[in-house]
Amino acid sequence: MIPVSLPRWLGASGLFCLLATSPAAAQVAEVAIERALARELELSVGDTVRLGTAPDSMDRRAVVAAVYEPRPDPAEIAKRERHLRMHLPDLAALLGVPDQVDRLGVGLHPGVSADSAAAALNRTAFGFRAYPSSAIAAESSQTFLVVSRFHRAIAVITIVASAVFLLCIMLLKVEERRMDAAVMRFVGVRRRTIFGALLLEAALVAAVGSAAGTGLAFLAGAATNAYYRRFFDTALTFSQITPQIVLFSVLLSLALGLAAGGLASWRLVRTRPMVLWGRG
């Protein structure tokens, strides 16, 4: 079967489809329609539809032979198109141009190189150009690469802003401890001990923060996926948090927390106890 695209509102270009409820007749073409289209037009297997290339020429009847779930494709999701699949002779007859094909896919036996197959076809054929699927995928992924870079830039800005924010929080938290630090110094607690205690606290804050942040990220990811899957009616994954991302985030958070806590604590323990006490 050949996939045929239909605009979602089924009437602007290419192919038109009209729901018919009469039972399937002999000799009519068979089509497979994607699940979303079947749901929208309330079609099921065995129903008959009329097809045509314009609203006033829908004279071809076809019976719904199958309802299929298309493989999720991020490149297609925003187009809001609906598809059905027809046998090539039926499509050619419908279009009235039997020898005209825009695109076709070639299946290869396992082990056959797509690159060499494409090269062989391009050497021997005339009037079309063959591409390996990886090249088409790379071409159609350009938008996603740009989006991905944009996300990365946002992430870097977020991390920098978070680091500054974290440093400020740590400075404030440590400043709150001036009196405690002064008293500890008065009763004979060493700078090293105070520094270690504050650093440990910073590490705990960072660890708790990264655990909370990871949990929040999973919740936000689940909500994002649920919303957009419903919105686009697709099984695509829009937000994915991999173990590598979690590990990177936790390590980065710990590093930033320790750096910020260490800087603030170092500043505190280098200050004379009488100054911390407010009498210096």
Binding site: M179, D180, V183, M184, R185, F186, V187, G188, V189, R190
Partner: peptide
Amino acid sequence: DRELTRLRLTRLGFIFQRFHLL
């Protein structure tokens, strides 16, 4: 400073007006 800190720890005991417990 380190020796003075040690001396405060082992030879002196401090009590403050506002207690200053952790």
